[in-house]
C-alpha cells in the first residue's frame, strides 16, 4: 500500500514516488489497457501514457485520497485515446469521435479491482489462485504442479478466495 508520505511525495512530483506508484498500480493499469485494447504493445503504451499523465497532473492529486480511482480514470482515458487513434489509422473514412467503445471497455473497473486485490495476496496464495483460474487446474493438479500437499493447496485456496471475496465485496454489493 502507498503510504501517506509517498502520496505527498507524488504530489510534489518526486520521481521515486512515481516509481512507487508504478510498483503498486502498474499491473492493474496494464490489465485495464490490455483487457480493453486486446493488444500487448498498445497496453504497454497505455501504461507509459498513464503514468506520464499522472506525473504531469500530480499537482491535481489530493494526497489525502486513495490514488486508485484517480489512476484508474487516467488509465481508462489513455486506453480510449489509443483505441481511437488505432481506429483512426485503421479506417480513415470513419469518424473516430463517433466510435462506440467495444464491450471490452465495460468491465475494466472490475478487472482493475480484481488485479489490485490479487496483488495484495501473498505470492503463495497468488500461485494457487492463478493455477485454479488461469490454468483451470483442480486442487489435485495444483498440488502436483506446485509440489505441495493437497491439504496445503486447499487451505491456501480457501484462505485466498475468502480474502478475495471480502476485498471484492463492494463490487458484489454494487452490482447485486
Amino acid at each position: 500500500m502507498i503510504s501517506g508520505r509517498m502520496r505527498r511525495r507524488f504530489r510534489a512530483g518526486d520521481p521515486d514516488a512515481v516509481r512507487a506508484f508504478y510498483e503498486e498500480f502498474g499491473r492493474a493499469v496494464f490489465v485495464v489497457a490490455f483487457r480493453a485494447l486486446g493488444d500487448r504493445g498498445l497496453a504497454e503504451e497505455a501504461v507509459q501514457a498513464t503514468f506520464l499523465k499522472a506525473w504531469q497532473s500530480c499537482s491535481r492529486y489530493d494526497p489525502d485520497r486513495d490514488p486508485a480511482p484517480w489512476l484508474y480514470a487516467i488509465a481508462r482515458r489513455a486506453a480510449i485515446d489509443l483505441y481511437r487513434r488505432e481506429r483512426r489509422h485503421g479506417a480513415s473514412e470513419e469518424h473516430p469521435e463517433m466510435a462506440v467503445l467495444p464491450e471490452t471497455f465495460e468491465t475494466t473497473w472490475e478487472a482493475w479491482e480484481i488485479r489490485l486485490c490479487l496483488d495484495r495476496l501473498s505470492a503463495e496464495e497468488q500461485a494457487v489462485v492463478r493455477a485454479v483460474h488461469f490454468l483451470g487446474m483442480s486442487h489435485r493438479e495444483v498440488a502436483d504442479f506446485l509440489t505441495l500437499p493437497i491439504g496445503t493447496v486447499k487451505s491456501r485456496s480457501h484462505r485466498a478466495h475468502r480474502r478475495l471475496a471480502e476485498m471484492l465485496a463492494h463490487l458484489e454489493e454494487a452490482s447485486a
Partner: peptide
C-alpha cells in the same frame, strides 16, 4: 456476481504483467 467475478479471474488479461518500467519516464 461472484460467478461473474470468477469468470474475469479466468481471463488471461488479468494475469498478464507489463514488461517495461517507468524508468524511461
Amino acid at each position: 456476481e461472484l460467478e461473474r467475478l470468477r469468470r474475469i479471474l479466468g481471463e488471461a488479461a488479468i494475469w498478464e504483467d507489463p514488461s517495461g518500467s517507468v524508468d524511461g519516464l
